[in-house]
Design a protein around this nucleic acid. Structure first.
Lengths: 344, 344
DNA sequence: TTGTAGGCGTTATCAT
DNA sequence: ATGATAACGCCTACAA
C-alpha cells in the first residue's frame, strides 16, 4: 500500500550519498567499514530491496530463463522443467515457461518474446530440427540457448540422453535371447531421439549378424492411439515380431493394451521392453523391462550448461552433454516361443 | 548485436517529438493523421518496439503471471499450467513457474520473489491451507491471487473441482449395487480436496442409510506406495471392503497393483472407481470406472478469473469457480460377491 | 574514500 | 495538436 522505499531514502537514513549505498550492496571493496555498517543498518530498518526494473534498465541481468517445449503435459518435459527449475532457483533465477505445440512459428514468436522480456537465456526442445528460420535464429546467438533432446546444424549447445546406447543394449538383449523379428514402436520421426534409437536398433542387428526388417520400424508418433494401432497391425503380420521395443511415455500403454486385447501373454507370446520407466512398467504383471533415464537430471544439466554459458565459462560452440541410460531387467523378456518349446 | 532502437530515433526519423511517438503507440486520440502515419512508418522501418523494462519502471504492467504448486511433475498440475498458459499467452501474458514442494516457507519466499519481479498476479496451490503466515500474506491483497484446488480462511478467489459431488455419485453408485463396505484411499489430508471427497462419501452413506466405517477412510498420501500398502492392509481386514475408491493420479496404480498381487479380480472380487481419468484406467482390463474432471479447463478458469480480477471486473472477495465432474461408467464395478452368488 | 551528476527508455505533465 | 522536459530507481564515471 505505501510506496516502496528507494536508495535515496536509504542514503538519507544512513547519512551518506546514494552512490555509497549502491557500492555497499554491489560489494565494491573501497568502502569504509562504518559507512558499510550504517548503510546495511538503514537497509535493514527500511526493508529496502533494489528495484529490479530499474536495474534491468541499466542493463543488469533479469535472472530469468525461458523454457520452451511442445507440451508440458508430457511428464518427461514436466520432469525436465522441475529439474531445471530446482537448479535455477538455487542460483537466483526464475523460469518462464511457454509451450509451442511443436509449431516452429510459435517457437520463433516465443524466442522474440523471451528476448523482449530480457530473458538471460533459453532452454528449449524444438519441434522441427530442420526449420531454417528456427535454425537461423538460434544460431544467430542473440540469446544464449541450450537445446534439450535435439540437435541442429548450427552452433548451439545441447543436452540429451544416449538413446543410441539404450536402444543398442535393449535390442542386443533381445537378439541374445534368440529373437530375430524385433519391432520398434516410437515417435519423434526426424528428430535426434528417433534417429538415435533407430541407429541403436540397427547397430545391434549388425553386431549380431541379423537382418533388420524395415517394416518393423514404426516411428511416426508418440500417441497412445498410434502405438495401439501399430501393435495390432504388427501382430497381424504373417511374420509377426516376437518382441517389441515400446519407446515413449504414451507408447508403452498403447502397446500393452493392444497385446492384452489380442490375448497375447508377456513374455510367453511376446517380449517387451519399454522406455522411459514409469509406474505402469514397475507395477504391471509381469513387471516390464525398461530403458530408464533421468529426465530430472537432464533438466538440471541443461540449466547448468546454460548458466556456465552465461558466465562465459563455456561458449555456445556445440558442446553436448549426454546422459547415460540404465537397462533395467525385469520379467517381460523371454526367448521367442519356438525356442521355449525346444526346452519343454 | 547492434544496440536496440529507441523512441528518440523513431522521433527523429519521423520528424516529430518523442512525445508524439508515445502518443501514437499509446493510442492517444488527439494526434493528427499525418503525424500518426509518419510515426507508424518510422516505427516500421526501424523495427522499434518499446523497451519493457523502461515501461515497467514507469509503472506499466509486466504482463507476467506467477504459477506456484508443489510439484509440476504431477500431471494434474502440469495440465493446469498448460491450460493457464494457453489462456494467458492469448492475452499477452507470460507465465513464470516455481514449485514449492508443499513447503509454506518456500511459498512465502516465492510470493515475495514474484512480487519483486513485478508479477501482475499469482495462481497457486498451497501445501498447507492453515499456515497463518501464508493466509496472512495472501489475504493482505498485496498481489492479486487465485487459489487452485484449495480454500483459505481469508478473502481470496479460488477455482476448484466439485469433488464432493464426484465422490457422492461414485459412492452412491457403489451403494446402489449393494456394497456396504466401501474404502476410500486418497491423499491431501487437511486440504479442501480431501475434505470434499470424504464429505461426499459420507453424504452418500447417509442418503442410503448405511453406516460408514471410519477405518475404511485412508487419506494420508497421494503416493503410489501409500496406496499400495493401504490396499493390502484393507484387504487383509477381517471385514474387508468390497469396493475401493482410489482417488489421485498415483493412488490408482498403487491400488491396482496391490489387488493384482493379492490375486483379486476386478470387479468380481472387488469393485473399483478411480479419479482422475488416465490412460491406465481406460486401457486396463477391465476398463476402470472413473470420476473425470478437466484439469486443463481448471487452469484456464484460474487464469481467466485472475485476469478478470486484474481488470477490476471482479474483486478478490472470495469468488469461487467450481468445475463439475463427470462419472464415467466402465467395467470395474459389480454387485458385491455375496449378491453375485445369489444370482447364480 | 566519498559525493555529484548524467543517463538508461519510457510516459506524462506542462506549456505553447 | 505538438514539443520540451521532468520524473521513474538505479548504476557509474568522474570529480573532489
Amino acid at each position: 500500500l505505501r510506496k516502496p522505499v528507494t536508495v535515496r531514502e536509504v542514503a538519507k537514513r544512513a547519512g551518506v550519498a546514494i552512490s555509497s549505498v549502491s557500492r555497499v550492496v554491489n560489494d565494491v571493496p573501497t568502502v569504509a567499514a562504518d559507512v558499510r555498517e550504517r548503510v546495511l543498518a538503514a537497509i535493514h530498518e527500511l526493508g529496502w530491496t533494489p528495484n529490479l526494473a530499474a536495474q534491468h534498465m541499466r542493463g543488469i541481468s533479469t535472472r530469468m530463463i525461458g523454457f520452451m517445449f511442445p507440451d508440458i503435459r508430457n511428464p518427461l518435459y514436466a520432469t525436465m522443467v522441475q529439474g531445471a527449475e530446482d537448479f535455477l532457483i538455487e542460483h537466483g533465477y526464475m523460469v518462464m515457461v511457454a509451450s509451442t505445440n511443436g509449431s516452429s512459428e510459435r517457437e520463433l514468436a516465443l524466442l522474440d518474446l523471451f528476448a523482449k522480456r530480457g530473458a538471460d537465456g533459453i532452454i528449449l526442445t524444438v519441434g522441427d530440427e530442420t526449420n531454417p528460420a528456427v535454425i537461423d535464429r538460434i544460431g544467430s546467438g542473440t540469446l544464449p540457448v541450450v537445446l534439450l533432446e535435439r540437435e541442429m546444424p548450427t552452433l548451439v549447445n545441447a543436452v540429451g540422453v544416449d538413446h543410441f546406447d539404450g536402444a543398442l543394449r535393449a535390442t542386443g538383449h533381445l537378439l541374445s535371447l534368440g529373437h530375430r523379428r524385433i519391432a520398434l514402436i516410437t515417435g519423434g520421426n526426424g528428430n535426434r531421439v528417433a534417429r538415435d534409437r533407430v541407429a541403436g536398433v540397427r547397430k545391434a542387428h549388425v553386431a549380431h549378424h541379423v537382418e533388420l526388417d524395415p517394416s518393423l520400424i514404426r516411428v511416426q508418433s508418440f500417441a497412445t492411439a498410434y502405438a495401439f494401432r501399430e501393435t495390432q497391425m504388427l501382430m497381424g503380420l504373417p511374420a509377426a515380431p516376437t518382441a517389441i521395443l515400446a519407446f515413449g511415455m504414451h507408447t508403452f500403454p498403447g502397446v500393452l493394451s493392444a497385446l492384452r486385447l489380442l490375448g497375447l501373454a508377456v513374455p510367453r507370446d511376446i517380449s517387451l521392453i519399454a522406455s522411459n520407466d514409469c509406474d505402469l512398467a514397475q507395477l504391471a504383471t509381469p513387471a516390464i523391462t525398461v530403458i530408464r533415464y533421468d529426465a530430472y537430471a537432464l533438466g538440471r544439466e541443461a540449466a547448468g550448461l546454460l548458466l556456465r554459458q552465461l558466465s562465459g565459462d563455456v561458449l555456445q560452440d556445440g558442446t553436448r552433454v549426454q546422459l547415460a541410460t540404465e537397462f533395467i531387467l525385469r520379467e517381460s523378456c523371454a526367448p521367442p516361443q519356438h525356442l521355449q518349446e525346444n526346452h519343454e
